[in-house]
């Protein structure tokens, strides 16, 4: 018994030591990169912010409603189009449209949820996957018919903001995505742990049948979470329009990226999405900074995802 405890203690110490070594290595790497290619960290963090802010709402839906929403990026695309035309009509800046876009997209999400997804919740998970695939096609093609495949963009002065330090120029606008991602992560944590609706949602997510027995309206909780996630996606749609041009297919790559990030973090682990995004954003930018590795920046995303998932599965098996 005592020996076993000692063994556990030893393991615990080893784990601690390993974490410390990893942290030190990461810090050393960061310092080295900062000195060597200072812009990599700046660009990588901003890219990570964009990834995370789009992926977090998908993580929320997957964690609680347990569906992979293949129309995730398409909802952001619709929000961005709505923002564009509202801004054009009213001569408004997209930043003022963040909250209205969130509200409109949440409403759209709630309607879509009630009309379609809710009816498929009891079916096998693949049904929901293909259902949202159908929704994604329909949304993309409706926008394509209405506005053609030409791209739209509102040119903005402030997105070219930058800071000069020494010889280097650091663009800074995309830190707005970093702020958004952190806000989303913290806000969701507070919502899920401090509010009644949030606690109910967590309970539903963990055990829908049990939650129903204690009197929680399961479908209402799911609908609420889905609408909340879409509100976050909608706000990102308005923000996305500041940086990017929009066209019917603009959202679909982000669906896949978000899905990968959520899986890398592990289902239900929202802060983990932040970590995964930083890892990916930095490694991508690092590869892009050098001539020899430039073309391979895309592959690092997938290599890391496989490595993290396999690594985790091995450590789970060891624990067992």
């Amino acid at each position: 018994m005592a020996a076993k405890q000692n063994g556990n203690k030893g393991k615990h110490m080893a784990l601690k030591r390993r974490t410390a070594i990893l942290a030190a290595l990461a810090a050393a790497a960061t310092v080295l990169i900062l000195l060597w290619k200072p812009t990599v960290i700046n660009n990588g963090l901003q890219q990570a912010g964009l990834y995370a802010a789009i992926a977090i709402p998908m993580g929320l839906v997957l964690g609680i409603v347990h569906i992979v929403n293949l129309a995730h990026g398409e909802f952001m695309m619709v929000a961005a189009y709505a923002t564009y035309f509202a801004c054009k009509a009213l001569g408004m800046d997209p930043l003022f449209a963040v909250l209205p876009a969130a509200a409109v997209t949440a409403l759209l999400g709630w309607v879509v949820f009630r009309l379609t997804i809710q009816r498929a919740l009891k079916a096998p998970e693949l049904n929901q996957l293909i259902l949202t695939f159908g929704i994604a096609i329909a949304l993309t093609q409706v926008v394509n018919i209405l506005f053609t495949s030409q791209t739209y963009k509102i040119p903005l002065e402030y997105v070219s903001a930058s800071i000069d330090i020494g010889e280097n120029t650091f663009p800074v606008w995309s830190y707005v995505f970093v702020a958004t991602a952190i806000l989303y992560a913290v806000g969701l944590r507070l919502f899920l742990t401090r509010t009644t609706a949030g606690k109910a949602a967590v309970a539903v997510g963990q055990n829908p049948r049990g939650a129903a027995i204690v009197g929680i309206d399961v479908n209402r909780s799911y609908g609420l979470v889905f609408a909340l996630a879409l509100a976050l996606v909608g706000a990102m749609g308005a923000l996305f329009l500041t940086k990017s041009a929009i066209f019917p297919q603009v959202g679909s790559p982000y669906t896949m990226k978000s899905f990968c990030l959520v899986a890398m973090a592990g289902i239900g682990n929202i802060p983990g999405i932040l970590g995964a995004s930083v890892l990916l954003g930095l490694s991508e930018q690092l590869l892009r900074a050098f001539r020899e590795t430039r073309a391979w920046a895309d592959i690092v995303f997938f290599v890391l995802i496989i490595a993290v998932i396999l690594g985790r599965s091995v450590s789970w098996r060891r624990k067992k």
Partner: peptide, 26 residues
């Protein structure tokens, strides 16, 4: 990868497919 289950298996097969594409592309 065949020790992975559920969504993790799906994601890894997706990622492998993308890796094949990028390698051939490059």
């Amino acid at each position: 990868i065949l020790r992975l289950r559920a969504m993790y298996f799906s994601i890894v097969t997706l990622a492998l497919a993308e890796m094949f594409r990028i390698v051939i592309h490059n």
